[in-house]
């Protein structure tokens, strides 16, 4: 752990007790994030990306068991931090925006009330100073007539505007870390690009680290420094974004990349890839590679423990030393 490490997570495990047995939703996740860095966690629905981020926030639902070797934010051990300490971190040092801008703001209070509340929860400031800060941030996230928006209610704003307000809300206290959980999924395609651009600009301008959770690899390519690919509760591949896109090593990562059109690589008129099969059940004991039921290169050894391959910067977990790249080329 170097000095500018902001967040370090080692061997994070999340278990959810269900009637049918324990659901091992997240298993042995490692990642770390330096100041100002953007990490993108990619995976399909149910892969445990959102749960991982909620675990960092200390906002897991009742009954979910969290276990880890290390979970540290700056000097705070998140595993042992008191509720009071977690409350002080949330909204101040770590902020979060969510997928659903339509329902993430309280319908009963004005935009201004909600922005000001956030600042006042963490800073001793006058209402007029908090107001000024709210206007400043609304302008920063590209909302026109910011001062008059303060008196408006969420239902008077469009989805795109509401997501901008959510971003302003998250930035009120200038957090060190912003967790964005699918921030553009619920928006129109044209708005998606704007919001993403805004997030990138703001993280640079404010020297803020970001965990961007998404299922859209196209988004990742434009934004992230580092990528962590999750499948069924495990990290299958992590590395610098450029390296992962250049040399996708895990069969699942390559499968995901084939699902999106890439300029210059995908031929016009050719069919985009799909990954056949469904995500396995994670109830009961889970061993070996979770992707083996859908992997074209699965071998009996996939049931056993899977070695970590690659180097410290770019690693992946597969029984095939090369992630079955050679096998794939032969069949192609």
């Amino acid at each position: 752990m170097t000095d500018d490490t902001l967040l370090e997570v080692r061997n994070l495990t999340l278990d959810i007790p269900t009637g049918a047995g324990t659901l091992h939703a997240v298993r042995g996740i490692d990642f770390e994030l330096r100041r100002g860095e953007t990490l993108s966690i990619v995976g399909e629905s149910g892969s445990g990306k959102s749960l991982t981020s909620l675990a960092v926030m200390g906002l897991l639902g009742k009954g979910i068991r969290r276990d880890a070797d290390v979970m540290r934010f700056e000097d705070t051990d998140l595993l042992t931090a008191s509720r009071r300490r977690m409350r002080a971190l949330r909204g101040d040092r770590i902020a979060m925006i969510f997928q659903e801008p339509m329902t993430s703001l309280n319908p009963a209070y004005t935009i201004g009330d909600q922005l000001i509340e956030t600042l006042k929860l963490h800073r001793r400031v006058s209402t007029s100073a908090a107001r000024a800060r709210a206007v400043e941030l609304l302008e920063k996230v590209g909302i026109t007539a910011a001062a008059s928006r303060l008196g408006q209610y969420p239902h008077q704003l469009s989805g795109g505007l509401r997501q901008r307000v959510m971003i302003a809300l998250a930035l009120m206290c200038e957090p060190d870390l912003l967790i964005a959980d699918e921030p553009t999924t619920a928006l129109d395609v044209t708005i998606q690009a704007q919001i993403l651009r805004l997030l990138v600009d703001l993280t640079r301008e404010m020297d803020m680290a970001m965990i961007l959770i998404t299922h859209d690899l196209g988004v990742v390519a434009r934004v992230a420094d580092k990528v962590a690919v999750m499948y069924a509760g495990e990290l299958v591949e992590t590395g610098p974004a450029a390296a992962v896109f250049e040399r996708p090593s895990h069969p699942y990562t390559r499968g995901l990349l084939r699902c999106i059109p890439q300029p210059g690589k995908t031929d016009r008129g050719s069919q985009l890839g799909t990954i056949p099969g469904i995500v396995p059940s994670l109830v009961g004991e889970v061993t070996g590679c979770a992707f083996r039921t859908r992997c074209p290169h699965a071998v009996p050894e996939c049931r056993a423990a899977i070695p970590v391959r690659g180097d410290a910067a770019h690693d992946f977990r597969c029984v095939h030393a090369d992630g079955a790249i050679s096998a794939e080329k032969e069949t192609a």
């Binding site: 993430s104 703001l105 309280n106 963490h122």
Partner: peptide, 22 residues
Amino acid sequence: NSDYIRTARAKGAGEGRVLFKH
């Protein structure tokens, strides 16, 4: 169970404030 209660918690609001204000 609504999203804006999760937002209130993510802001760092205490349980009392979450329950009675939000």
